[in-house]
Nucleic acid binder design. Structure first.
Length: 319
DNA sequence: AGGCTAGCCACACTGTGGGA
DNA sequence: TCCCACAGTGTGGCTAGCCT
């Protein structure tokens, strides 16, 4: 379900048509809720006219369940708890000097439970800060509660990384859909796997005909959220129609011109980070800096067995 | 409001390769 | 041949967003 880029309600022009307003009145009705400006949809090659930003930030997060536990309340009730470690990090890629560095990474640990009496848990040298979850706090629901603080940590750390090392002409790439990170400036969501078709068949053919580094025009998702999106083919694809295709999205709060600018930047920038198939089976979509960041973050979470033992000792002491 | 979907992550399982 | 470590794959569960 989508409406294409020259959403008439926006009063904006379709990309590629800089001055004459919505380009093609002879739009072809392809689907009941899809309107296609005929003749406008073609691959776009920006490599010769768009310069990469000097600095690109890539942000990602990882998490791990360290232990499951149960509380014993004074009234005889018992609540499930989850001790989890999570970490978020940002890689700062200086494209001018060809240098990538960890711009920031933070590890946090939480005790997620609905228990009204639970307190922070000190397990050896690490502290699990209690996060009270609402509802019955079933054990099966607890892993999901980790996602919110992890996203908050990602937002926090990417903002801090930008404050410390950017002149404003940068680009922030977050792994996965933007979701509630859309308020971050000059930020794109990077979706690696294509489980849903946002385009009708006629336009999908344009996606599969993309050559490496080419992108589709920007289109607007015809949803309540209504974000801007486009497809890009990374180099190193196997040759299969959807090989190396990623979907990128940015905030619906941006003007069409701003969305197009981000699309151009992404096309000039992301192909440089595409991984090689001999190094990474998820190539080329799994970007090299993100893969390295994930490894680093997992290492920072600490040894799971050591933490599990520390938690077992800590909970035994509180009995 | 409730059910459904997309995309992500964690985890368990399986296969493979190297070393003893 | 066995053991171990590592990587790949499949499954399930979650949230946010979407649809009715």
């Amino acid at each position: 379900m989508f409406v294409d880029a020259w959403d008439p309600s926006y009063g904006a022009s379709f990309e590629g048509d800089s001055s004459d307003g919505p380009a093609s009145p002879s739009s072809a009705q392809v689907d009941t809720d899809v309107e296609v400006p005929a003749g406008q949809w073609a691959p776009i090659d920006v490599s010769s006219r768009v310069r990469c930003p000097d600095v690109v930030f890539l942000v990602d997060g990882v998490r791990r369940n360290d232990a499951g536990l149960w509380t014993a309340e004074e009234d005889g009730l018992s609540y499930a708890g989850l001790a989890a470690s999570y970490a978020a990090g940002v890689v700062r890629c200086d494209l001018r000097n060809g240098v990538a560095e960890l711009a920031g990474a933070r590890v946090a640990r939480g005790l997620f439970t609905a228990s009204p009496s639970a307190e922070d848990l000190q397990a050896g040298s690490v502290r699990y800060e209690v996060h009270r979850v609402s509802g019955t706090g079933e054990a099966s629901k607890l892993p999901a509660a980790v996602q919110a603080p992890l996203t908050a940590l990602e937002i926090d750390i990417s903002g801090a990384a930008r404050d410390g090392g950017s002149d404003g002409a940068d680009l922030l790439v977050v792994d996965g859909p933007l979701r509630n990170r859309r308020q971050l400036p000059r930020t794109i969501g990077y979706v690696k796997t294509q489980q849903k078709q946002y385009l009708p068949a006629a336009l999908t053919a344009v996606v599969t005909s993309l050559r490496p580094t080419q992108r589709t025009p920007v289109f607007q998702l015809g949803t309540v959220w209504g974000g801007w999106s486009w497809y890009l083919r990374l180099p190193g694809a196997s040759g299969a129609p959807w090989s190396g295709i990623v979907r990128i999205e940015c905030s619906p709060d941006l003007t069409p011109a701003e969305a197009v600018e981000l699309a151009d930047l992404s096309s000039a920038t992301l192909p440089r980070f595409a991984s090689s198939s001999y190094k990474d089976p998820r190539a080329p979509q799994n970007l090299v800096p993100i893969a390295g960041l994930e490894r680093r973050l997992r290492g920072m979470l600490g040894d799971a067995r050591v933490l599990h033992r520390a938690l077992a000792i800590a909970t035994a002491r509180t009995r």
